[in-house]
Design a protein around this nucleic acid. Structure first.
Length: 382
DNA sequence: GCGATCAGCGCG
DNA sequence: TTACGTGCTGATCGC
C-alpha cells in the first residue's frame, strides 16, 4: 500500500468535504447531520417542501435515485450526493486501509471466503478487496495506493471479457449470441443492431447503452418495470425492447424458461459444472417470493458457472506457478479478474501465460477472452 | 456501552 | 412491486 498517497488523498477529500458541508448548511438554512437520512428527510421534504419520491420502512427515502429526481428542483440534492461520495470514499477506503496494514509484512491481509455466496462466488472481507472503487475518477484514484511492494515490481490485472454473456451463449446455444462471440463482435453493439433492426455501423452510443442495460437485465431476469427505470423510458417502450430482444434471441428465451421449469421440478438451479443452489421459494404461494426465486434461478447458472471457471483457473495458476518456482504472487480475485504482484524477470512470461491459463479454464462453445494490463499499481494495470 | 437493524452505496 | 450476488459505514434503537 502507498500510505503516503492515501494520506494526501484523505486531506484533499477532507477539504472538499468542508466546502460541500458549508454549501449544504447554507442551502438547508441550518446545521444538521448530513449523514443522517432521517434528518436529511426532514430538511428536504418538510422544511423545503420537495416532493417525497419514495418511502423506506422507516420514513422518507433519500437514496441516489430520489436525489437524482430532485436535482432540477433544488440545488441541495446534488450537493448531498457530492458529500456522500466524498464521505464514502474517505471512510470506507482511504482512511480504512492504512489502519489494516500488518506491521510485520507491511501489507493488508484480507480474507477470501469460500462458503458465503449462494452462487459459488468467493466473497472478500476485512477488508473487502472486491469493492474497491473504479466507476468514478475520484474513486478510481484510490487504486493508485494498491502498488507492488518492491520498487521495480509490477501489478498485473487479467480480467475475463463479458464472461457471463459468453456463458449465457454456451448454456442457451442461441445462434445469434454464439455467432456474435465467435466473430468477437462488440456484444452490446451487436445486441443493439438486433433489437433495433439496424446495421452495426448505424448504432449510436445511446442505442449501445440501451442494449447494455438489456444484456445485463436479461441475465438478472429483469422486467419492463426495472428496465424502464434504468433507462428513463416508458414502461411500454421498455416492454417493446424486451419483446424485440426475445424475438431475436429465442434460444435465450427458451433457455430461461427451461431453467425455471427445471428448478420447479428439482428445487434447485445448477451450474455447468454441477454446483447446486437450492431455491426453496420457487414453488411458493407468495407471488413476490416466487418471482424473486425465478430471477435467482435464472442468474445462478450464469454467475455460478463464471465462479466455477475462475476457481479452476486459480487452481491451475497456483499449480503452474509452484511448478515453475515463480517469485510472482497471485494476490487478488475480483469475480472475473485476477491480480498479480509480478517480479520484473517474470513479467513477459506472466503476460503470456496468465491469460492463456484463464482462457483454457472453461471449455465453452464460444471462446473465452481475457484482457491483461500491467503497471506499477492497480490503477495503471486497469 | 453494546449488539442488532436500517439506509445507503461501493464492486462484479 | 421494482434486475442477481456480495461487505462496510454511520445512524439509530433497544436492552
Amino acid at each position: 500500500m502507498d500510505t503516503k498517497f492515501l494520506k494526501i488523498m484523505s486531506r484533499n477529500i477532507g477539504q472538499k468535504m468542508t466546502r460541500a458541508m458549508e454549501e449544504i448548511y447554507d442551502l438547508a438554512g441550518g446545521v444538521f447531520n448530513i449523514n443522517s437520512p432521517k434528518q436529511l428527510g426532514l430538511i428536504l421534504f418538510e422544511k423545503l417542501g420537495l416532493p417525497p419520491v419514495k418511502k423506506t420502512k422507516t420514513g422518507y427515502s433519500t437514496d441516489v435515485t430520489v436525489l437524482e429526481k430532485l436535482k432540477n428542483q433544488h440545488p441541495l440534492p446534488e450537493k448531498i450526493l457530492e458529500f456522500r461520495m466524498l464521505t464514502k470514499l474517505r471512510s470506507t477506503y482511504v482512511d480504512a486501509m492504512p489502519a489494516l496494514i500488518n506491521p510485520k509484512t507491511l501489507r493488508v491481509h484480507g480474507s477470501f471466503n469460500q462458503t458465503v455466496a449462494a452462487t459459488g462466488r468467493l466473497s472478500s472481507s476485512n477488508p473487502n478487496f472486491q469493492n474497491i472503487p473504479i466507476r468514478t475518477e475520484m474513486g478510481r484514484e484510490i487504486r493508485k495506493a494498491f502498488c507492488a511492494q518492491e520498487k521495480d515490481h509490477f501489478i498485473l490485472a487479467a480480467d475475463y471479457s463479458q464472461v457471463e454473456l459468453r456463458i449465457m451463449a454456451h448454456l442457451s446455444e442461441d445462434p445469434n449470441l454464439v455467432a456474435a462471440f465467435k466473430q468477437d463482435a462488440d456484444i452490446h453493439t451487436h445486441t443493439a443492431a438486433m433489437v433495433f433492426n439496424l446495421k452495426q455501423e448505424d448504432i449510436t452510443s445511446d442505442m449501445r447503452r440501451t442494449a447494455k442495460v438489456i444484456n445485463f437485465g436479461i441475465m438478472y431476469g429483469a422486467g419492463a418495470h426495472r428496465i424502464s427505470q434504468e433507462l428513463n423510458i416508458s414502461h411500454g417502450d421498455a416492454g417493446a425492447i424486451i419483446k424485440a430482444y426475445f424475438e431475436r434471441y429465442t434460444g435465450v428465451k427458451d433457455y430461461i424458461e427451461k431453467t425455471i421449469t427445471e428448478c420447479k421440478e428439482l428445487g434447485y438451479a445448477s451450474t455447468l459444472y454441477g454446483r447446486k443452489r437450492p431455491i426453496q421459494d420457487i414453488n411458493s404461494e407468495n407471488r413476490n417470493l416466487q418471482e424473486a426465486a425465478k430471477r435467482a434461478a435464472i442468474n445462478m447458472p450464469v454467475q455460478g458457472t463464471a465462479a466455477d471457471i475462475i476457481k479452476i483457473a486459480m487452481i491451475r495458476m497456483h499449480d503452474w506457478m509452484k511448478k515453475e518456482n515463480l517469485k510472482s504472487k497471485m494476490i487478488l480475485q475480483v469475480h472475473d479478474e485476477l491480480v498479480f504482484e509480478v517480479h520484473p524477470d517474470e513479467l513477459e512470461l506472466l503476460k503470456k501465460q496468465v491469460p492463456a491459463i484463464m482462457e483454457l479454464a472453461g471449455k465453452l462453445i464460444v471462446p473465452l477472452k481475457v484482457d491483461v494490463g500491467v503497471g506499477k499499481d492497480w490503477y495503471e494495470a486497469h
